[in-house]
């Protein structure tokens, strides 16, 4: 019995000893002082290297900021010199740019019109042309950014004129009354023209430069025939005014 108890005690002691050895082994895996020192050395070296890199970077950034500021100043000086060269100031340049914007806006508006409407507002093409000519007389137009823009605007105005000319803008040479019975009414009535006598004010208004009195046209006169379409407000007004004058003249007689 005593032997059995002794055996149990011995076995228990051995198990306890084995457990102690395992715990000791686990504890031994924790960092030792030497390992700590080694890591401290490694991390310190890394920190010093990064500090040095950061200092170098900071110096580079400071230098770049200085260069950037110098470039800003150089650009301003160059732009000021450029404006002085054409006798302009920032204010006059702004006004000039606004005028070009206005030309753009007008050309865009005219470009969206049908040929008939464009014909009715053909005077506005001349107005735009005047604005372009005026801009060209300004020395600011010599600056490449404006020079090219004005060139483009001129191209667009030329295109508007071409589309006006190609939009069925015919001409009609007035014949004699004896042979052709040509008056604005009869010309408008011709199938090859409008096939509608009531469109005569269109021919009159399209040729204001050469017809002051619509009752008087001369043989051999070359009349521009505006594109077909409804009478515009101006053409209607001109016709009304004509008939009123006629009526007044008739009453006077």
């Amino acid at each position: 019995m005593e032997n059995q108890i002794m055996n149990v005690v011995r076995r228990m002691s051995l198990v306890a000893l084995a457990a102690l050895v395992m715990v000791t082994g686990v504890l031994a895996q924790e960092m030792t002082k030497d390992e700590w020192q080694k890591q401290m050395n490694e991390w310190t070296a890394k920190r010093d290297e990064l500090r040095s890199k950061l200092n170098t970077l900071q110096a580079e950034v400071d230098q770049l900021k200085k260069t950037d500021a110098e470039k800003v100043a150089a650009i301003k000086k160059c732009n000021d010199n450029l404006l002085a060269l054409v006798g302009a100031t920032p204010e006059s340049e702004r006004a000039f740019a606004a005028m070009l914007d206005q030309i753009d806006s007008k050309v865009n508006e005219l470009s969206r019109l049908s040929n008939q409407d464009l014909w009715a507002r053909k005077g506005e093409i001349d107005d735009v042309q005047k604005m372009i000519d005026e801009a060209r007389n300004n020395k600011l137009s010599l600056l490449p950014k404006y020079y090219d823009r004005l060139k483009e605007q001129q191209n667009r105005v030329d295109a508007l004129r071409r589309s006006l000319e190609s939009a069925g803008m015919q001409t009609y040479t007035v014949g004699t009354w004896a042979r052709d019975r040509d008056c604005l009414w009869n010309i408008a009535k011709k199938p090859a023209v409008y096939d509608n006598a009531f469109m005569w004010p269109k021919i009159w208004q399209g040729n204001k430069d050469q017809i002051s009195n619509p009752d008087i046209i001369k043989p051999g006169q070359k009349l521009k025939i505006p594109p077909k379409g409804e009478l515009t407000q101006d053409e209607k007004a001109a016709a009304r005014s004509y008939w009123q004058r006629k009526q007044a003249a008739g009453s006077a007689q």
Partner: peptide
């Protein structure tokens, strides 16, 4: 900015 400056210098010559 270098490109802007270069452009301005070229514009000056053209003008």
């Amino acid at each position: 900015k270098s490109a802007q400056l270069n452009q301005c210098e070229q514009d000056t010559k053209v003008v």
